[in-house]
Simulated assay, not measured.
Amino acid sequence: MRRAVCPGSFDPITNGHLDIISRASKLYDVVHVAVMINKSKQGLFSVDERLALIEECTSGYGNVVIEAFHGLLVDYCKQRDIPAIVKGLRAVSDFDYELQMAQMNHGLSGVETLFVPTNPTYSFLSSSLVKEVATWGGDVSHLVPGPVVRMLTEKLPGR
């Protein structure tokens, strides 16, 4: 069985994330979506809220497993016998950082990283930008799935 992981903080999940997950789900038998927990960062959404949003937004794929994980991504992969990490690249600036991470992960565990170019429609999109625009009352409905719009409205009532 071919398995891969799409890791991230997903705070919140965006249409760009979903594009990468969807494309990975067509290439692999099982795609793990790992919500990586960074205890030093305070997110807008709790880990449980992120997991629920991703579950709702990916329910139609049929081969996606969603989990939270605290620690090294390579440990997550080892524990689940996952040989590949799938990452979306938005711009050249992403590549510099992601290449270093891919080389480190491969050196630590032999896990391969596959880079998928982001759909140009989402090349500028990040969770941080979505949160900033939503905080100031901007319309993000074309950038995130409906359940995220609903949760943003609940979390940011003054928008």
Rank of each mutant, 00 (worst) to 15 (best):
H70T: 15
A52C: 00
G71R: 13
K78I: 14
R80N: 10
K78V: 14
L73Y: 11
A68F: 08
N63G: 09
V92D: 10
L72G: 04
H70Q: 15
G60C: 03
E67P: 11
H70M: 13
R90E: 08
K78Q: 12
I54A: 05
C77M: 11
Q79K: 13
I85Y: 04
V64K: 05
F69W: 15
I54F: 04
G62L: 05
N63Q: 10
L72M: 14
G88W: 00
I54R: 05
A52E: 10
A84L: 06
Y76K: 10
V92C: 09
G88K: 01
G71K: 13
V86Y: 02
G71T: 12
A52I: 01
A52S: 05
E56D: 08
A52T: 02
S59P: 02
G60L: 00
D75V: 07
I54V: 11
E56V: 04
I85L: 09
I66W: 05
A68W: 07
R90P: 07
S59N: 06
E56T: 04
F69C: 03
I82H: 02
A52H: 00
S59I: 01
K87E: 00
D75H: 09
L53V: 02
N63V: 09
P83Y: 02
F69E: 05
V92M: 12
A68Y: 06
S59H: 07
S59Q: 09
V74T: 15
E56A: 06
R80M: 10
G88R: 02
V64L: 09
F69S: 00
V74G: 15
A52Q: 04
D75A: 10
S93A: 14
G60P: 07
C77A: 12
T58V: 12
D75Y: 02
E55T: 13
V86G: 05
L73M: 11
K87A: 04
L53A: 02
N63K: 08
C57L: 00
R90I: 03
I66F: 11
F69V: 05
G60K: 01
L72F: 06
N63E: 12
A91S: 15
A91E: 14
K87T: 03
Q79F: 08
G88P: 06
Q79M: 13
A91F: 02
R80W: 12
V65E: 14
K78F: 07
N63Y: 09
G88V: 03
G60R: 01
S93Q: 10
C77V: 10
D81H: 15
D81R: 15
I85W: 03
L73G: 03
D75I: 04
L73N: 01
G60V: 00
P83Q: 04
Q79G: 04
I82Y: 05
A52P: 01
L53D: 02
H70I: 12
I82N: 06
V65F: 10
V86T: 05
A84V: 13
A91R: 08
A84D: 00
V64Y: 11
P83D: 03
E67M: 14
Y61G: 11
I66A: 10
L53H: 01
V64P: 12
L89R: 04
N63A: 09
L53R: 00
T58Y: 05
Y61I: 14
R90V: 07
F69D: 01
Y76C: 08
